[in-house]
Structures are given as structure tokens and as C-alpha cells.
């Protein structure tokens, strides 16, 4: 019974946290106190929910927090704009005859770098991490799940980072560093 009370208290704190943030972010100037109070409530809610029912408690209480925030958006759906302005997309600004340079080769190269090449680098990095983890006495099941979780995380971070880079040379160097760092660790640890 104590656990269920603790869980509902967590839900209540999380929902209250969202309301506080709503108030805080609606102010014309920033309120550090309200921000800390809002985020603090959400953090306390997470801790209490985990304490009550572990990952299940966190997952369910998070649904309440997200749901509350989305419901707070609802009044905006019916609220009319208080002033008129020219719609942003009311007309074309550029010359319609202007054709975009397709640069197909460049796009294919970007796709290959951020896609398959980055995925391969992510896999190598995850395998290297597995080797290090197993090398320091990590359990086999944990080591394998580490790879399953790290491949998508590493790939998404790597792909985003590569797409943020302006120069092709920098992209290739990043991939090379990842591969050069990962391959020896993976091979040595076999």
C-alpha cells in the first residue's frame, strides 16, 4: 500500500512540475526559481516512481507527465490569434525558374557516409566497448545487450554529428578515427 501511495505521489509531483513550468515559461522574463521548482518536481517524481516500482513506475508516471503537457497545449488549438499578420507562406520569394543544383554525386556520398559507413563505425565502436566491458569482468549477457543498445545510439549520434560537419574531409577523418580506435580493441580482445 505504501508503494502505491508513493507511486501516486510521484505522478502528482510530475503533473505539478509541468504546471509550474507552464507558468514559468509563460512569463515575459525568465524565473530561475520557478524553473528549478518545475524541473525539481519532475526529477523528484522520477526518483519516487523508480523507488516505488522501478522501471515500470518510471514508464507509467512519465506517460502522465507527457499527457499533462500535451493537454496544456489544448487551449491553444481554439485560441484565435490576437493580431493579423501576413501569412509566412503567402507567396513565393524566389524565382520559380531557378533550378536547384542537384549535385547528385555529393548527395549519394553524404548518404553513404552518414548511412552505411557510420553504421559500420557504430558497430565497430559498440564491439570495442563490448570487448573492454568483457575485459574488465563484465557479464556476458550484459556485454551482448550493451552492443544491442549501443549500435543504434552510436549510429544516430555519429550520423547527426557527420551531417553537422561542413567539410567532407572532416567527416571522413571522424569515421577513420572511430574505425582505427575500434578495430584493434575488438581484434586484441578476441
Amino acid at each position: 500500500m505504501a508503494l502505491i501511495s508513493q507511486f501516486w505521489l510521484a505522478v502528482l509531483l510530475g503533473v505539478a512540475g509541468v504546471f509550474v513550468l507552464r507558468v514559468s515559461w509563460a512569463r515575459p522574463s525568465r524565473s530561475v526559481t520557478l524553473n528549478i521548482l518545475g524541473w525539481g518536481n519532475i526529477l523528484a517524481a522520477a526518483v519516487l516512481a523508480i523507488g516505488a516500482y522501478g522501471a515500470w513506475g518510471l514508464a507509467v508516471s512519465a506517460l502522465f507527465v507527457m499527457g499533462t503537457a500535451l493537454l496544456l497545449l489544448a487551449p491553444s488549438i481554439v485560441r484565435r490569434p490576437s493580431w493579423k499578420r501576413r501569412p509566412l507562406d503567402s507567396g513565393a520569394r524566389a524565382d520559380p525558374r531557378q533550378r536547384q543544383n542537384l549535385a547528385l554525386g555529393r548527395r549519394v556520398a553524404t548518404f553513404a557516409i552518414a548511412g552505411p559507413a557510420a553504421l559500420l563505425a557504430a558497430l565497430l565502436l559498440a564491439l570495442a566497448l563490448r570487448s573492454i566491458f568483457a575485459g574488465v569482468g563484465g557479464v556476458e549477457a550484459d556485454a551482448n545487450v550493451l552492443v544491442l543498445a549501443c549500435v543504434p545510439v552510436f549510429w544516430s549520434i555519429l550520423a547527426t554529428a557527420l551531417l553537422l560537419m561542413e567539410h567532407r574531409r572532416m567527416q571522413l577523418a571522424t569515421l577513420a578515427v572511430a574505425a582505427v580506435a575500434a578495430i584493434p580493441i575488438t581484434i586484441l580482445a578476441r
Binding site: 497545449l73 491553444s76 488549438i77 501569412p87 503567402s90
Partner: peptide, 9 residues
């Protein structure tokens, strides 16, 4: 929380 849903653009 800034949703200008009725701007129509």
C-alpha cells in the same frame, strides 16, 4: 507551450 495553431500558415 507556444502553439499558434490558428495562424493558418
Amino acid at each position: 507551450f507556444r502553439l499558434r495553431a490558428r495562424r493558418g500558415d
